[in-house]
Design a protein around this nucleic acid. Structure first.
Length: 352
DNA sequence: AAGACGGGGTC
DNA sequence: GACCCAGTCTT
């Protein structure tokens, strides 16, 4: 690893990056128009582990429904999760909502400028705090997202994969090293753009890169070796049984999942144990479907039991359904609630 | 320090 | 089908 850098190098590299940004950088992303800290924050949280093109429609929907942080703070979590459905990592949506409330109550609706204060807010870590400080307030703060990690790992041939402690430490050191005192808003956008558009994972366009002349990987033709990829392990398979319990004139029974864990806070189908708790017994299965869904860390295989409960049998259920965390869902008139993608698909595939 | 947490895009 | 992505939080 080549960490033999001098301040002079950093100034030159940053100047080249800024010059590249003026010519080629992205300046018309939705959150760059009429820029506010609220928009920057919302986009940055959405962009955690999610790519720009996926985020754009979600961002537009959120801004339309929640034009400012107070409106978002005042909304119900169910509606926030509903608009978030499909983005994944639903803890982000819960933290987003909580953060909006803290900013509204504690900061009178104005996001703080200090990265340390920003990082103390729910859902804002070191990189996102820096991104908000730099992009919304043009303060000097170093970011280190996936794009910047790849760019810096190549620039200095940093060994290891970015999940490793030492690797991350080296990358943060480099990120701090190159971040300039001036024009930090443009610089942070520039390094992200370079990572996304030029220093891509495969087929990097080194001839278009403003840092080509300083890049250790380019010099040794080892761009494809950096950053090292995460050691892979085989994903386990988890099996479960889920019930699509239909009650005429009511809909399908959904239960809200716990706030943490898979599909946290979202509404999903009950499993056999939950059905038994509610009905005292398992209803007769009319039809079975198979569901397979791959998560990043395991594969879910579920057997879906389709059941219909007639009105005479469902007395106890009718009473219990008033409990919190239980609801009927009518696909014909869907509620604005958070539904996991595969569950939404199941509930709406029946209309044949 | 390591693992949990999603769904979509890409090749 | 494998791999990756504008990270953060929990243990």
């Amino acid at each position: 690893m080549d960490l033999s850098v001098t301040p002079n190098d950093a100034d030159q590299v940053a100047a080249a990056i800024l010059s590249w940004y003026d010519q080629h950088g992205r300046k018309s992303l939705p959150w760059q128009q009429n820029r506010t800290a609220y928009k920057v924050w919302l986009s940055e949280v959405m962009l955690q582990q999610t790519q720009v093109n996926t985020v754009i429609p979600y961002f537009e929907n959120f801004i339309t429904r929640f034009p400012d942080v107070q409106t978002l703070a005042a909304a119900g979590i169910d509606e926030v999760l509903h608009l978030w459905t499909g983005l994944g990592y639903y803890a982000r949506a819960r933290n987003l909502h909580k953060c909006a409330q803290v900013v509204t109550d504690k900061y009178k609706g104005e996001f703080p400028e200090d990265p340390e204060l920003l990082e103390a807010l729910p859902g804002i870590g070191r990189s996102t705090a820096a991104a908000i400080a730099a992009q919304a307030y043009n303060k000097r703060a170093a970011i280190l997202d996936g794009n910047v990690k790849r760019f810096l790992a190549r620039l200095h041939c940093v060994p290891g994969w970015p999940g490793q402690g030492n690797t991350l430490k080296a990358l943060w050191r480099l990120a701090e090293h190159y971040t300039p005192q001036q024009r930090c808003q443009a610089y942070t956008q520039a390094v992200m753009d370079i990572g996304a558009l030029v220093c891509t994972r495969r087929n990097p366009k080194c001839d278009q890169c403003p840092a080509e002349r300083w890049c250790a990987a380019r010099l040794t033709a080892s761009q494809h070796d950096f950053p090292h990829s995460k050691p892979k392990k085989t994903n386990p398979v988890r099996q479960s049984t889920l019930y699509m319990l239909y009650v005429p004139n009511s809909g399908y029974l959904l239960l809200q999942r716990p706030p943490t864990g898979i599909w946290g806070g979202l509404w999903s189908l009950p499993d056999a144990k939950e059905i038994k708790n509610l009905l005292g017994q398992l209803p007769e299965t009319e039809e079975k479907q198979h569901l397979e869904h791959k998560f990043s860390h395991f594969t879910l295989q579920a057997e879906i039991h389709l059941c219909t409960l007639n009105t005479q049998q469902n007395k106890p259920l009718s009473l219990n359904i008033r409990e919190q965390g239980q609801r009927w869902y009518n696909p014909e008139q869907p509620d604005n609630i958070g539904l996991p993608g595969p569950i939404h698909k199941l509930l709406h595939a029946l209309r044949t």
